[in-house]
Simulated scan of single mutants.
Amino acid sequence: MFVGGDSIKGEDPNYSDQVSGFLKKLDQESLIVTNMGLEERIRGCAALTNCESFDHALAGFLSQEPWPDDVQLFQPYETEQILLPDNANCLAVQTFLKMCDLKYVVEYRTNAEEMSPSGRVPFIKCGACLISDFEPITSFVSNKGISLSAHLDEVQKADMRAFMSLVNTVLGNAENYLTWVDDETYSKITKPRYGSVHPFPLNHWLCFSKRRTVLKKLSALGWANKSLESVYEEVEKGCSALSDRLEKSRFFFGEQPTELDALVFGHMYTILTTPLPNNRLASTIRGYPNIVDHCKIIEKQLFDCYVIELSCIFEHYIIWGRIERYYEESGFDYYDP
Rank of each mutant, 00 (worst) to 15 (best):
G4R: 10
D6P: 00
P13L: 05
N14C: 07
D17I: 15
D17Y: 15
V19N: 03
V19C: 09
S20G: 05
L23S: 02
Q28F: 15
E29N: 12
S30V: 09
S30Y: 14
L38Q: 10
R41Y: 05
R43V: 08
R43I: 12
R43F: 13
L48M: 11
S53Y: 10
A57G: 04
L58R: 07
W67E: 04
P68F: 04
V71Y: 06
P76W: 12
I82E: 01
L84W: 11
N89Q: 15
A92E: 06
A92S: 14
V93N: 04
Q94M: 14
T95L: 10
F96L: 09
K98N: 11
M99V: 03
L102Q: 07
L102D: 01
K103Y: 09
V105F: 07
R109H: 12
R109V: 02
N111R: 07
E113Y: 15
M115R: 05
S116N: 02
R120E: 13
V121C: 09
I124R: 03
C126K: 15
C129S: 14
L130G: 03
I131A: 06
D133A: 05
T138G: 00
V141T: 05
V141Y: 02
G145W: 11
I146M: 08
I146V: 12
L152M: 10
V155P: 00
A158M: 13
A158K: 13
D159Y: 11
A162K: 10
T169F: 11
N173C: 07
A174W: 08
T179S: 06
V181P: 04
D182R: 11
D182P: 00
Y186E: 00
P192D: 06
Y194K: 01
Y194E: 01
S196P: 00
V197L: 10
P199K: 06
F200W: 15
F208Y: 15
K210N: 08
K210I: 02
T213C: 06
T213I: 09
K216Y: 13
L218T: 04
S219F: 12
A220G: 15
W223Q: 01
V231S: 01
E233K: 11
E234L: 10
G238Y: 02
C239G: 02
S240K: 14
S243K: 09
R250K: 12
F251V: 07
F252P: 01
D261Q: 07
M268W: 04
Y269C: 08
L281C: 01
L281D: 00
L281A: 04
T284P: 00
I285Q: 03
K296G: 01
F303Q: 00
C305M: 08
E309Y: 06
E309F: 06
C312V: 00
C312Q: 05
I313N: 09
H316A: 13
I318G: 00
G321H: 14
G321E: 11
E328W: 10
E329S: 12
D333E: 14
P337S: 10
